[in-house]
Structures are given as structure tokens and as C-alpha cells.
């Protein structure tokens, strides 16, 4: 099993859509996939046709009884599972944070229990991923970290000042019409050895996917973004490779 944690280098880079698309693509490649929404804003579920009002999720299920967190697990397709965050009231959220702080290895253990059932677990994390950040659980060291960014000046500035450590960099919404985007991609390719050699293009299909309440691979199987994500999945299979 490989755990991949995806998070934006800043907010609004489209991480959630990438998680949904990537989970779907890995599934089409015959992998058993679980997508876990670790973002309190709880949007990942919308890519899988859950109702706007639906409030279920691991955070809600685990509220009364710690052990019942996994009851929120949903099967989207045979071999493709989703664990939404759930909708919590503000005070409940604060309580969850306290709880997580008290048990920093909460998700390490939870991932342990999921271990046998999946080839891939994709975690959709909020944009900031500094340890000890509120709402962000501690993860095991074996997790493959993947930072989603757009080829723009803000991301470049953040990359230059904060760096990305050993995290993989995935460029989303790449638009080769833009000179700046081409230049940045070229520069990053030169400077960051962890830049994934497959970008995801800016494609209307990617934007339409959420509005259509499905992952892009399902919504627009013949779009370029779909092929990009499929290539990304293939790359993951080779890179984070494990014996399936």
C-alpha cells in the first residue's frame, strides 16, 4: 500500500479535483483506491455525486465513538472508496483539533488498519502542511508527499522562500499559452529534481468535473486533462511502485 498526501503549496491550486481525478485514474488502472478527505471544508465528496447537504464523514462518525470513524467509508465503485470529512460545527471542529493534538499518531494508526484493504490511499489535505498546524494530523514518514502548485509567480515565490523539502511537485492548470507559465515550468524543471515530469493542463473539462459532480476522468474521458492524470497515475505506479 502506498499513501499519497496531496496538498496545495498555496490555497486554490485545485488539489481536491486532482485527488478525485487521480483516484479515479488509478482505479481504472486496476488499483484498489481509497480517497480520504482530510480537509475540513469537505469538498471531495462532491466529485462523487454526494448531496450538498450530506454531512456524513469520518469526523462526524468518530465524534461519539472514536472506533466508529471508519463507518463513514463509502464505496463509489468496486475497488474505489471514499472517506469524506463530514460537516462539523465550529465548536466540534475545535474539539476534534484538541483530540488530534492529544493523540498525534491518530491517523498513523488509522492508516495501519486500512493497510491491507487498498493499494493506494490518497489524502486530500488543506493547503498548508507545516507540522503542528491546526487541523492537520501527523502522518507516517513513509507517506509520499505531493505538493500541487500552479505555474504562477506566487507559487514561485513560496517555492523560493519556503522550499518544498523532499516533496514531489505537481503542476496543475498548466497553460502553455502563457509565456510566464512556460518560463516557470522550464526553470522549475531545471531547479527542482522532484518536479513530476507530467503536468496537468488547464482544461475546461477539469473545471466542469466538479460542476458535473464527478471526477474528470468520468466526466470527460477524452479530455487532455484526463490523459494527463492518467499519465500521472502511470508515473505514480512506476515511482511509488509496490507489488500490486
Amino acid at each position: 500500500m502506498t499513501v499519497v498526501a496531496l496538498s496545495g503549496i498555496r490555497g486554490g491550486t485545485g488539489t481536491t479535483s486532482v485527488v478525485a481525478a487521480l483516484g479515479f485514474a488509478l482505479h481504472t488502472l486496476g488499483q484498489r483506491v481509497l480517497m480520504v478527505d482530510l480537509n475540513p471544508r469537505n469538498l471531495l465528496r462532491l466529485h462523487f455525486n454526494l448531496a450538498l447537504e450530506s454531512a456524513d464523514g469520518w469526523a462526524v462518525a468518530g465524534q461519539e465513538d472514536e472506533a466508529r470513524w471508519s463507518e463513514a467509508l463509502l464505496q463509489v465503485l468496486e475497488g474505489l472508496h471514499l472517506l469524506p470529512y463530514g460537516t462539523l460545527a465550529a465548536n466540534a471542529l475545535a474539539g476534534l483539533e484538541l483530540h488530534q493534538r492529544a493523540h498525534p499518531d491518530l491517523w498513523v494508526q488509522r492508516l495501519q488498519t486500512l493497510h491491507a484493504h487498498f493499494d493506494w490511499i490518497l489524502l486530500d489535505l488543506p493547503a498548508t502542511l507545516a507540522d503542528g498546524q491546526p487541523g492537520v494530523p501527523m502522518l507516517p514518514d513513509t507517506v509520499m508527499r505531493l505538493r500541487v502548485l500552479e505555474a504562477d509567480a506566487a507559487c514561485h515565490a513560496l517555492l523560493s522562500t519556503e522550499g518544498a523539502g523532499d516533496d514531489y511537485l505537481l503542476v496543475n492548470r498548466f497553460d502553455p499559452i502563457s509565456q510566464l507559465q512556460r518560463d516557470l515550468l522550464l526553470l522549475w524543471g531545471e531547479r527542482h529534481s522532484r518536479l513530476i515530469p507530467q503536468v496537468i493542463h488547464r482544461d475546461e473539462a477539469m473545471a466542469g468535473a466538479l460542476a458535473w459532480k464527478s471526477p474528470v476522468g468520468y466526466y470527460a474521458p477524452d479530455a487532455l486533462a484526463t490523459r494527463d492524470v492518467r499519465s500521472l497515475a502511470t508515473w505514480l505506479l512506476a515511482e511509488g511502485g509496490h507489488d500490486a
Partner: peptide, 20 residues
């Protein structure tokens, strides 16, 4: 050609030049 394009990029954008 890649290298010269890289140079051109840094010349084009002060932010890139600075970070380099």
C-alpha cells in the same frame, strides 16, 4: 536551446532573476 531559453526567462522576469 533550453539553456538560452532559461536565460531569456530570467531576463524577462525580475522575480525569476532574483530567485536565481
Amino acid at each position: 536551446s533550453r539553456e538560452s531559453e532559461l536565460l531569456a526567462a530570467c531576463r524577462r522576469w525580475p522575480l525569476l532573476a532574483e530567485s536565481e
